[in-house]
């Protein structure tokens, strides 16, 4: 660990933020086109975030602020762990469980801060978000266990580089198609894209955990959302689509994957939270188990 590592880490966070925020802006345009609108400028998302930072704000007590800082700090740290096209700020820290659990620090922080605001809608939103997490994470975890068993490594960058060099048929998405499908469905849940977005239902529970945020805390939450999107899409990209040999390939693949989720969610209705749980435990979990049994007991997928 030298100073260089930290500078790289800082740059990684910054780069991830800029990249994902631009992509979100572009995707707002894509969604607008789906709805036959013109849509905002591509850098609209930056303006929104900076505007939120520029406004005055309120606080409901120290845990409200502390939770927000812990959330964004945790997520920023997770971004540093993510290997991007083989590059890492801190080599050797990219174990898949470490990443998915450090991510949980951020989520816990956000939940804490939201519940600390004293608004019951925030608590309802958090309870839904946690339930949602229990729904999508289990099928995804089953697939991850299968991957670790198959490749005998839990490091994300190694899992990505194993898939490279043999064209797209080397991707786990094609080698383990069922697991690939499961993880893409789980990605929708992770990103909170429709149909799994009931925890931020704006009209029903006034945007759930976000209900009390305004000003800089709101800006932090938006930033958090962008970084979290980056982590989740990167994770799926590295595990199933071969990561990227170079930064450019990585970014192109990333953009395609993210835009795909966005387009699909643009035409989806919304699941109630218990429907989401039942769905995940019926279809994706079943598929994941079939995939796991095929790999572990029948040796398929090598």
């Amino acid at each position: 660990m030298t100073l260089m590592n930290f500078i790289y880490g800082f740059l990684a966070v910054l780069g991830a933020f800029v990249f994902q925020t631009s992509l979100t802006g572009i995707n707002r345009k894509v969604t607008a086109r789906l709805q036959k609108r013109r849509g905002p400028k591509w850098y609209q998302q930056f303006i929104d975030i900076f505007k939120a930072f520029s406004k005055s704000s309120i606080t409901h007590g120290w845990v409200y602020d502390f939770g927000a800082i812990m959330a964004l700090g945790g997520i920023a740290a997770t971004v540093i762990f993510i290997p991007v096209a083989g590059m890492q700020a801190f080599p050797g820290l990219d174990n898949i469980f470490v990443i998915s659990y450090v991510l949980a620090v951020g989520m816990l922080g956000m939940a804490m801060s939201a519940a600390g605001s004293g608004n019951p809608w925030a608590s309802i939103g958090v309870s839904r978000a946690l339930t949602n997490m229990l729904a999508y994470d289990i099928p995804f975890m089953v697939v991850v266990f299968t991957l670790i068993y198959q490749h005998n490594t839990g490091s994300v960058s190694e899992l990505a580089s194993i898939q490279q060099g043999v064209g797209i048929l080397g991707w786990n998405f094609f080698k383990l198609p069922l697991g690939g499908i499961v993880s893409v469905i789980a990605l929708f849940g992770m990103l909170g894209k429709k149909p799994f977005d009931s925890f931020i239902a704006p009209a029903e529970i006034a945007s759930g955990p976000m209900v009390e945020y305004g000003g800089k805390q709101l800006g932090m939450m938006f930033t958090l959302h962008e970084l979290m999107t980056f982590i989740e899409v990167s994770l799926i990209l590295n595990l199933f689509f071969g990561g990227g040999e170079t930064l450019l390939i990585y970014m192109v693949k990333y953009a395609i994957l993210y835009t795909f989720t966005n387009i699909v969610s643009g035409v989806m209705p919304r699941f109630k939270i218990d429907q989401a749980v039942t769905f995940f435990y019926k279809v994706p979990l079943g598929l994941a188990f079939i995939q796991g049994l095929l790999v572990i007991y029948l040796g398929w997928g090598y």
């Binding site: 930290f6 880490g9 800082f10 966070v13 930072f53 005055s56 704000s57 309120i58 606080t59 409901h60 007590g61 602020d65 927000a68 800082i69 812990m70 964004l72 700090g73 945790g74 997520i75 920023a76 740290a77 997770t78 971004v79 540093i80 762990f81 801190f90 820290l93 450090v102 620090v105 000003g215 800089k216 805390q217 800006g219 932090m220």
Partner: peptide, 22 residues
């Protein structure tokens, strides 16, 4: 690394205008 992330955000938080307690 976690502490580093936390520190970055703490600095950001401190730089921005102070919040009003309600």
């Amino acid at each position: 690394v976690f502490g580093f992330g936390f520190l970055l955000i703490l600095i950001l938080f401190m730089v921005l205008p102070k919040s009003r307690r309600v």
